[in-house]
Simulated assay, not measured.
Amino acid sequence: MLRNREFSTILADGSKPHRRSGYRMPQVSLRELQVFLAVCECRAFSRAADRMGVSQPALSRTVRDLETRFDLRFFHRNGRGVELTQAGRVLRQHAETVISSVEDLEIELNELRESASGVVVIVLPTHVSQVVTPKLVRRFAEHYPKASLHVFEDANDRIADRVRDGVADIGLFYAYAPPDTPRQDYVAEEPLFLVELPDEDGNDDDGPITFAQLADRPLVLPRRKSVYRQFLEECADGAEVRLNVVRELEMGSTQMAFVLEREGGSILPFSHCWSEVRSGQAVARQIVGPKITRHITLIRSTFKQAQMVRVAGQILNEELRASNAMFRWQFVAKADQKAG
C-alpha cells in the first residue's frame, strides 16, 4: 500500500524548476496523485470514486483542491465524462513516473526485508507464553520468512538476566516497581485477585474485595523465601493486615491446583486462573483498598539492535493487548513508559 507522502514538483529530467524569490512550490501527496490517475484512466469521476473506494464528492473535492493549489485546470468536464487539459497531460506524465518509482521502491525494500535472516530469541513467563506464542511466531514469519523466532519459557526471576547476559533478545517479566533503567519499557499493570471456589450455595460473587477482608480468608501461598510472597507480605503490612496462610508451597505454579482441592483460596494474577473462572470452577475478586499490582516490564538486549528485534517486540506488545481478556492487565500509554 502506498503511503501518503508529499513530493515537490520536478521536471522531466529530474531537476527542480527555478523558484522565484518568495514562491513556495505546491506540495502533492501520493494519495492525490492516485486519485488524479484514477480519474484519467476511468474518464469519469463516478467510476474513479468506485475504484478508489471513496464517495464521488470526496474524490471531486480532492481534484478541486489539487487544481486550486496549482491554479490550473486539469480536466475539461462534459456530459460524457472528463478530458485532460494540457496541464492535466503534463501532470499525468509526472504522476505516472512518481507512482511507478514508489512502487518499485516498495518492491525492492520488501525484497530486502524478506531476504533478512537470523534468529530472534524471546523469553516469557509460562502463562504468557502459552497464550501469545502461536500468533507471535506466525506473524513474525510473515514479516521475515527467512528468519527464525525462538520463544522460551523461564522463571520470572531469571528472565531479565537472560536478556542482560545476551542469551535472549527480548524478555517480559513481572516487576514489583516501575522500571527505571535503559532498555526497559513499562508495559502494563497487573492487578492481583483473591481466587476461591464458589461457596456451597453456588454463590459466585466476583466483586472487588478489600485487603482488610483477606484477614479471615484461609490462603495457600508460596513460601516466604519467594519474591512474590515477600511482595504480598509487604502489601499486607502496609494495610495492617495479617494474612491467614494455611499452607505454604515450594512451587507457586501449583497454587491454583491447591485451591481446586479445597485447601483454601489464593492470591493470583488473572492469567493463572482465567480458565477455571471461565468454566465456573473458581471465582476471582480483584483486591482493592489498597489495590495491589505487579508491573509488566519488557526488557530488550543491548547486544542486538536489529530491526527484526524491534519488529518482534512490537508484535509481542500487540498480541498481549489482543489477548488481554485472559490477563486483565491495565496497559499504560507510551508517554508513561520509560523507554530505552
Rank of each mutant, 00 (worst) to 15 (best):
Q307C: 04
D206E: 04
G202W: 08
I170T: 12
E234L: 12
S8I: 00
L109Q: 04
V82M: 02
F36H: 03
Q314R: 03
L268S: 12
K225D: 14
A339W: 05
E261A: 14
G171H: 10
A48E: 01
E189A: 05
R183C: 13
I299K: 09
E234M: 09
R164H: 07
V187E: 00
L268D: 11
A87S: 15
A215W: 09
S115M: 11
Q213Y: 03
A147M: 03
Q286I: 04
L221W: 04
V120F: 14
R64K: 11
A257F: 10
L124S: 11
Y176S: 08
E276G: 15
F193N: 09
E250I: 11
E114D: 11
S101P: 02
A325N: 11
E189M: 08
V121E: 08
A333S: 13
D104Q: 12
L243T: 10
Q281C: 09
C235M: 15
T68S: 15
A335G: 15
T85L: 01
P222I: 08
V163G: 11
A49Q: 04
E111C: 08
I209D: 08
F7P: 01
D206L: 01
R113I: 03
A312P: 07
V137Q: 14
V123Q: 13
R285H: 01
P17V: 13
V39T: 00
H295V: 05
C40E: 01
L316V: 01
R162F: 12
A116W: 06
L172M: 09
K225P: 06
E190F: 06
I292T: 05
R61I: 07
V120G: 09
P26L: 10
G166V: 15
L59A: 05
V288K: 06
G238W: 07
P179H: 10
P182G: 10
D104T: 04
A38R: 00
E276K: 12
E233F: 05
L2I: 01
G289H: 12
N317R: 02
V309S: 01
A312D: 06
N78F: 13
I159F: 14
K334V: 06
R19W: 00
L260N: 08
L316T: 01
S323A: 12
R300I: 05
N317G: 04
E248A: 15
Y176Q: 06
V82L: 06
F36C: 00
F74G: 00
P290A: 09
I107K: 07
V311L: 00
V311W: 03
L91P: 00
G280W: 02
S148E: 14
V54T: 10
G207P: 01
C235D: 03
R223C: 11
F70K: 01
P198I: 14
R138Y: 08
C42E: 15
V227H: 14
D65M: 07
L91V: 02
I292W: 09
V332S: 02
G289P: 01
C40S: 05
I122P: 08
S226K: 12
W329R: 02
T210C: 07
R285D: 05
R278K: 11
V98P: 04
L260C: 06
A257H: 10
L298T: 00
E6Y: 01
Q255V: 09
D161Y: 02
P198A: 11
L91R: 00
A168K: 07
M326W: 05
Q34A: 04
G289Y: 08
P178I: 11
E32C: 00
E153K: 15
A215G: 02
L30T: 02
L268T: 11
R247F: 11
L84K: 02
N244Y: 15
L109Y: 02
R80Y: 12
E32H: 03
